Simulated scan of single mutants.
Amino acid sequence: MTSLDDLPLRDDLRGREPYGAPQLDVPYALNTNENPYPPSERLVKALGEAVMDVAGTLNRYPDRDAVALREDLAAFLNADTPGVGLTAARVWAANGSNEILQQILLAFGGPGRTALGFEPSYSMHPIITEVSGTRWIAARRDEDFGIDPARAVAAVAEHRPDIVFLTSPNNPTGTALPLETIEAVAGAAPGMVVVDEAYGEFRRAETPSALTLLDGHPRLIVTRTMSKAFAMAGTRLGYLAADPAVLDALLLVRLPYHLSAVTQAVARTALAHREELLGGVNALRRERDGLVAWLRGAGFEVADSDANFVLFGTFPDRRRVWENLLERGVLIREVGPPEWLRVTIGTPEEMAAFRTGLRQSRGGTAPHTPRPDSVGDIKESQ
């Protein structure tokens, strides 16, 4: 049979591994940062009716620019972050935030161009960057997983990247960035600055959104998703807010009719029921903060988190801990610096199972002080 080696694949793609977290059938799946609360029967009915409403028109192409959906998204962002005054002309949508990132790189990256990110961070940033033909430059986060503004500005000045990626809250650490850091980078960057806020709705009350910086920064882009807080991972809907000129650029690279009529209908229905869907966010925040306190009380190191997951450690053999938990039906993520693990915040039942499993699997795997060079040493995707 023909193998991949027999095909005329691009040389820069040879040897790569496809992205993906383990998909295993376990009682407690806490590895992909999904929202654990499914839609109610009332919302399921509303979603079904929305799909039925468009089903009779599926012989026609959808609204190419998803104008009504973008209006709804702008209204949500205005409510989420009062004062930003967004309109559909400043909001764009695509199939998940990863397609948003791909469109940004197609428009502003490419051969001969570079993108800079601060690791450990979302592993799809370098993957999409390099697949688009853009060169990836990895800078390091600080030991506490933050980003010192002066060091960030120095990295931008040294490399002069065409795109800078800032992730806040950061995946896999949960770390949020102060607005001062984002402003410093935006002021120094010669190209585009992308603030990935996929977990923005989970941020703590005192943590601001980069949406507040859009006015006055025409090269700033803030990306969001409906996969996490909205519990709509299966819908595949990501979006961004930016200057209208950014949308003009993305129109040059987007695929025709890239958002199906079904996707648009489901996403609009979810936005109309956002009070229900976002109702679990506060509960997840409380579970997260309680878990952070519990882990620290048990002697683990824990990164401060503004997301719906927690990075904790450190372990001389994290694979052993991961496998021990898996044997007990609890699947978490082996990701980030090599001595750390990440757990998604789930329901109270799921978190109780995680705590019990961690206590039972801890024998011989006591946390210890990490090596000085462990921060930023990324070996696995997230």
Rank of each mutant, 00 (worst) to 15 (best):
L255D: 12
D373Y: 05
K228C: 01
D53E: 14
T134D: 07
F165W: 14
F118L: 06
A229Q: 09
A233F: 07
L116C: 07
E180Y: 02
R10H: 09
K228Y: 13
F300R: 08
L7C: 04
Q23S: 14
A115I: 02
V54C: 13
E41L: 14
P27A: 08
Y122Q: 03
A94R: 13
R288G: 00
T365H: 15
V281T: 12
T32H: 08
V156N: 13
A55E: 11
G329K: 09
V67L: 13
Y61R: 08
Q102Y: 06
D196G: 01
P149N: 10
R274V: 02
T225M: 05
R328T: 03
E380Y: 14
G364M: 11
A267L: 09
T87N: 04
L259T: 14
S40A: 06
P190N: 01
T235Q: 04
L331Y: 03
Y28V: 11
L7D: 06
L237D: 00
T356W: 12
L73E: 07
G363T: 14
P149A: 05
P126F: 11
E201I: 00
R362H: 14
T129M: 05
P372S: 14
L101R: 14
V164F: 10
A205C: 01
L250Y: 08
E41M: 04
A154L: 06
L213D: 02
I128E: 05
P161L: 04
E71K: 11
A366I: 14
F354Q: 11
R268V: 12
H273T: 04
Y239K: 09
I182C: 06
H125D: 02
E119I: 13
A245W: 08
G85V: 02
Q23R: 15
I163M: 10
N98F: 10
L284R: 11
A154R: 14
V246M: 13
G117E: 10
D5F: 07
A352I: 04
E349Q: 15
T175G: 00
P256E: 07
P244T: 07
S209E: 05
V262H: 10
A249M: 11
P27Y: 04
E130M: 12
P178L: 06
A176D: 09
L325F: 04
E380V: 15
L214M: 06
L331M: 13
Q382G: 14
R60I: 04
G146Y: 00
I332R: 01
G83Y: 09
H217V: 07
L325A: 03
E327I: 02
L220R: 01
S132G: 09
I128G: 03
D11V: 05
I378N: 13
R296H: 06
L24G: 04
K228I: 11
G85D: 15
S374E: 09
T181F: 01
D373I: 03
S3K: 12
A198P: 01
E276P: 05
A229L: 08
V156A: 12
T167Y: 00
D11I: 02
L326W: 04
V51R: 15
I137C: 04
V195I: 12
T356A: 15
T235V: 15
A155Y: 03
T57F: 12
R320E: 15
L106K: 13
G290H: 02
E34Y: 07
L116A: 05
F202D: 00
F230E: 08
T167K: 01
D65T: 12
M351N: 05
